[in-house]
Structures are given as structure tokens and as C-alpha cells.
Amino acid sequence: MSLVMDILTICAVSAGALFFLAGTVGLLRFPDTLTRLHALTKVDNLGLGLIVLGLLPQTSSVLFAVKLVFVWLLVQLSGAVVTQLIAGAVRHHGADG
């Protein structure tokens, strides 16, 4: 059982880390601000999400697990709002902000 869990953890955390890499590459390569913003949201959603998913089997208590999910939700919320705000600013002032 614990082996399955460990494999799950390894897969999910690695995948999450790869999404961080992918998001970063996107930030580097994408041509304009809005598409770079898009890459950033992928990091927020999937990168952190997968890492949290991978960490869940390793937690020792329920409270711990709840906190993990809570952190993820919090980042979702603030990430979404921040991208909205940035996008709005870009629309108002052009990419130079």
C-alpha cells in the first residue's frame, strides 16, 4: 500500500515540478504579456496542484492534509485575482504597464 502511495507521490511531484519548468519556459519564450500571463496561471494551477496532490499521501495527519489543500485553494484564489488585475492593467495601459 505504501509503495503505491510512494509511486503516486513520485509521479505527481515530478509532474508538478515539470509544470514549473514548463511555466518558466513559457514565461521566457512567449511573445507578449498576456500569453506569458497564461503560462503563469499554468504554474499556479497545475504545478502547485500536482505537488500538493503528491504530498497528500505523505502527510501524517488529517489536519496536515486539510492545510495542504487549503494552501492550494488560497493560491488559486489569489493567483486568479492577480492575473485578472494584471490583465486589466495591461488592457488599460498597454504592455508597458
Partner: peptide, 15 residues
């Protein structure tokens, strides 16, 4: 009033 910001200011403070 910026709807996105107001949304954040309504949701984040309770948390």
C-alpha cells in the same frame, strides 16, 4: 470600484 479586487477583498479577509 474594480469587481475583481472587490471579489478578492470580500473573499480573502474572512480566510
Amino acid at each position: 470600484p474594480d469587481p475583481t479586487l472587490i471579489f478578492l477583498a470580500q473573499l480573502l479577509p474572512p480566510v
